[in-house]
Structure formats: structure tokens, C-alpha cells
């Protein structure tokens, strides 16, 4: 028990929570925007993989870090555009298209990686984002290390939540976007284009997912390797549900999941880790997430028109 307390009061634990949460936050906001407009984007996992690769390879080829983020975002938007085209004007099954995009984007990333680096066995490293020193705050004892030792990209992730909430709830655009996910007929009857709103949401949302992927290679691990996204995209889909399609609650969910994840890594190194196989610890965040999902999402309001294609002129 005292070991658990030791973990919880260590500043490095809290820093790790924020670091693990940041990529999830980007991708979760991306998915949330898509779903609020009425489109389920199961391309998220693959788009994150491609974002991770695109950001990394840009920097590896000599580009700047922010250029890497921008390239990842544009690549994500490209996949988003394909997804949007197939699901919105063509009205194809969002499940099939999403899974297809995930397979396409994942395979494209691995293929491009092999083309670029046919010979390597050890993934080459890049110089990643460094923790941002905030005068005053970062120098605080304990708090400075726990909360104010994040990279600029991490901070951007948290800003992204505020921005998403602001747009969704405080602008006419957000109102129209939410309405497109609730009742597209209402949007159409008020003279707005459902297709434009939904396609825009999917494209922008996919861009954010790719930035979430890029965070992994550019702020967390500093190199690209296969299987590195490792289901984070699927976790983000669950986080959107956990957050009841609200940005603030989804942020809370991401932090909670990151907390469980940071905890299990540290628990492995305690006395308990000597007896219990480490795979059990790996399961903890997922088990607890499922539990939290059950508790939190029972009364959630699903966007009423989620996964319902809208065709003009059909009734």
C-alpha cells in the first residue's frame, strides 16, 4: 500500500500522466468532432499510424518539428477527405469505410517506411520536442516537475480541448455542426449544407487524429516503429463515448486512462510485480476503462443522427 502512495506522490508519475494523455486528447477531439457531426470515423487508428510516420519522416528528412506536425495534419486531412467523400456524398457504410481507411493508412505508413529505410533494423531517432520551460511555474518545487514540464505539443493538446469546446458551444458553426449530428433535416431546412458541414468535420477531425499520432513519434518516443499506436485509436473511440460526446468530459476520460496506464507501469516495478505476471498489469487500464465506461456512459446522449447518411431530396 505504501508503495502505491509513493507512486501517487511522485512528480514523475503526474508528468507521465499528462504525457500519455496528450496524444489521446488530440485524437479524441478529432473523433468527437466527426461524431458530433454524425459521422463515425473508424479510420482513427490508421490515421494515427500515418500521422506518426509522416511527422517523424518530415523531421528525419531535415524538416522542422512544427513542419512535421503540419505534414502529419495535412496527411490526416487527406485520409479524412477520402473517408468524408465515401461516407457523406456517397453515403457508404461508415463501419466499412472507416476500417478500410485504417487498413489503408496503416499499410501505407509501413510501406513508405520500408521504402524510405529498406536496410535498418534499429529505428533511427530524431530530436523530439523538448519540455517547455515556463519561467516561474516550471521552477516550482514538485508542481514544476509534475505539471509544468510538458512539451509545446502537449500544451497544444490541452488548448485543443478548449478550442473544440469553444467552437462547438459558442459559435454558429458549432451549433450547425451539432445539429448536423442530431437532425440533418433541420440543418437542410435552415438553408445550410449538411454535406459541407459533415465533410469539413471529418477532414478537420482526421487532421487532429494524425497530430495525435505524430505526438507519439515527435514528443514521446522520438522514433517510428511498427505497432507503436497499439490500439490507442480504439481507446479514443471509447473515450468519446465515455465523455458523452462532450470535450471536457472526454479530457477527463483521457487523463483517467493515462493515469491507470502510468500506474500499471510503476506497479510492475514494485514487490507485487515480482509475483504477478506483467501482462496482468498491462490489462489494468483497459479493465478499469471498461468499468468506467459502463458507469459513465449509461445516460449519455448519443448524437441522434450518428451513422445515418443524409441524402438530399429523399424522405
Amino acid at each position: 500500500m505504501s508503495e502505491l502512495v509513493d507512486i501517487l506522490i511522485s512528480a514523475s508519475f503526474w508528468a507521465a500522466v499528462l504525457r500519455i494523455a496528450a496524444p489521446l486528447i488530440f485524437a479524441t477531439m478529432g473523433e468527437l468532432i466527426c461524431e458530433r457531426a454524425g459521422v463515425l470515423n473508424l479510420g482513427i487508428e490508421g490515421i494515427m499510424v500515418f500521422g506518426a510516420f509522416a511527422g517523424w519522416v518530415t523531421v528525419y528528412a531535415g524538416g522542422g518539428l512544427w513542419a512535421g506536425v503540419a505534414v502529419a495534419m495535412l496527411a490526416g486531412m487527406g485520409f479524412g477527405a477520402v473517408h468524408a467523400l465515401l461516407t457523406v456524398p456517397f453515403g457508404l457504410s461508415q463501419h466499412v469505410v472507416g476500417l478500410g481507411i485504417t487498413m489503408l493508412a496503416t499499410a501505407s505508413a509501413y510501406y513508405a517506411y520500408r521504402l524510405a529505410l529498406p536496410e535498418v533494423t534499429n529505428p533511427p531517432r530524431i530530436e523530439p520536442f523538448q519540455p517547455l520551460h515556463i519561467p516561474g511555474l516550471s521552477d516550482l518545487p514538485w508542481l514544476g516537475e509534475a505539471l509544468f514540464s510538458q512539451t509545446a505539443l502537449s500544451w497544444a493538446g490541452f488548448a485543443c480541448v478548449a478550442l473544440t469546446a469553444l467552437v462547438l458551444y459558442r459559435t454558429p458553426l458549432g451549433l450547425a455542426l451539432r445539429a448536423a449530428g442530431e437532425n440533418p433535416q433541420a440543418v437542410e431546412a435552415q438553408g445550410l449544407s449538411v454535406a459541407a458541414l459533415r465533410m469539413g468535420a471529418v477532414i478537420v477531425g482526421s487532421g487532429l487524429m494524425a497530430v495525435g499520432g505524430a505526438f507519439l513519434t515527435m514528443s514521446a518516443f522520438s522514433s517510428f516503429f511498427f505497432e507503436m499506436v497499439n490500439g490507442r485509436g480504439w481507446i479514443c473511440i471509447a473515450l468519446v463515448v465515455f465523455g458523452a460526446w462532450k470535450p471536457g468530459k472526454a479530457l477527463l476520460g483521457a487523463l483517467l486512462f493515462a493515469g491507470f496506464d502510468a500506474l500499471q507501469v510503476r506497479l510492475q516495478q514494485t514487490g507485487l510485480g515480482q509475483i504477478v505476471p506483467y501482462q496482468v498489469f498491462l490489462m489494468i487500464p483497459y479493465l478499469l476503462s471498461i468499468l468506467a465506461l459502463i458507469l459513465m456512459s449509461r445516460r449519455a446522449q448519443v448524437p441522434a443522427a450518428l451513422m445515418t447518411p443524409f441524402n438530399r431530396g429523399e424522405r
Binding site: 469553444l166 459558442r170 459559435t171 454558429p172 458553426l173 451549433l175 450547425a176 445539429a179 433541420a186 440543418v187 435552415q190 438553408g191 445550410l192
Partner: peptide
């Protein structure tokens, strides 16, 4: 209010 204001506005 839906659709009555320019979309790109804070």
C-alpha cells in the same frame, strides 16, 4: 438560431 448567423463568427 441554427443557420441564421454567419458560421465563421465567435
Amino acid at each position: 438560431q441554427l443557420g441564421t448567423e454567419p458560421l465563421w463568427r465567435l
